[in-house]
Structure formats: structure tokens, C-alpha cells
Computed example of a mutant assay.
Amino acid sequence: MVAKDPGTRIDFEFDWAAAYPDGQAVLASDWSAEPDEAGGVTVAAAAHDLTRATVTLAGGIAGRVYRVTNRVTLSDGQIDERSAIVRVEER
């Protein structure tokens, strides 16, 4: 679980190389945050290289819990996704 303040922007990353040691590369990456609501956690920026996908998360309503999901397409055609839980708290 990741904790963030509603007023901060934080970076979060998944390292896909550990899950795919045979040399597959990340060709595409898409991030989403749920629930999608006014004032909720949003994807402010995203990037990826051949092994990692990174997102910058912004906003969120204090006391709420969000699921942030990264869906990637790999060089061998596989599609996979991972999620993390983000709890928004005033700090």
C-alpha cells in the first residue's frame, strides 16, 4: 500500500524485468486510477522504458482508497497488468 497526501504529487514505478527475465521489453504502458471521481487520484504523467513503467499520481480525497493499475504490452505480444493500492491521508 502506498500512502499520499491529497496535495502532493508522487512517483510510483513497476519494474517488469523481474517478472519477465527472458528479455521481453515493455512496448506500451497505460495507467489508470479507480474509482474515477471528481477530486480523486489522477495520473498526472506517465513514462516507460524497456523494463520499467513509471507514473506520477496527483490529488485524491483524504480517507479514500484507490487502485492504481499499470497495463503493459510486451515485445512478445503478452499483455499483463499490476495494481497497487493508494491510501490518501492528510500528513
Rank of each mutant, 00 (worst) to 15 (best):
V55S: 08
E13M: 13
F12Q: 05
G60K: 06
Y20E: 01
R64G: 14
K4V: 00
P21M: 03
S32N: 09
G40C: 05
T73V: 05
G63P: 08
K4L: 01
A62L: 00
G7M: 00
E90G: 13
T54L: 14
T8I: 00
G63S: 05
S75A: 05
I79T: 15
R87W: 01
L74H: 07
M1W: 05
L57H: 11
V68S: 03
R71T: 14
F12M: 03
H48L: 02
D30H: 02
T73E: 15
E34I: 01
T54P: 06
A44L: 06
D80A: 15
V2H: 11
R52V: 05
S75H: 03
E34N: 10
V65S: 15
R87L: 02
G7H: 02
A19D: 08
G60S: 03
H48M: 01
T8S: 10
D36A: 15
F12D: 10
A44N: 07
D22Q: 13
M1Y: 05
R87T: 05
A18L: 05
V2T: 12
S29E: 09
Y66W: 04
V86T: 05
P6T: 10
A62T: 02
A19L: 08
R64S: 14
S75R: 07
S75Q: 07
V43R: 06
A46L: 06
W31M: 04
A45D: 14
T56V: 02
E89T: 09
V65M: 09
V65C: 04
V72S: 11
T8D: 13
E34M: 09
E13Q: 10
V2D: 13
F14T: 00
A62K: 07
W16C: 02
R9T: 11
A28N: 13
R67W: 03
E81W: 02
F14H: 08
V68Q: 05
M1N: 09
A38C: 04
N70H: 06
A45Y: 13
V43N: 06
D11A: 08
G23P: 08
P21A: 05
D49F: 01
I61V: 15
V72Q: 14
A62S: 14
A38W: 08
L27F: 14
L27S: 13
A84T: 10
Q78E: 13
D15I: 00
G60N: 13
T69M: 01
R64K: 15
V65N: 13
R91D: 12
D80E: 14
L27V: 13
V65E: 14
G63V: 00
Q24N: 10
V72N: 05
R71L: 12
R71D: 07
H48S: 11
A3K: 14
F14I: 11
D36G: 07
T42C: 09
A33S: 15
D80H: 11
A25T: 15
M1A: 15
D22I: 01
A47V: 04
E34R: 10
S32V: 08
L74D: 11
G77Y: 02
R67A: 08
S32T: 13
L57I: 04
P21E: 06
A18N: 06
R67S: 12
V72E: 13
E89M: 10
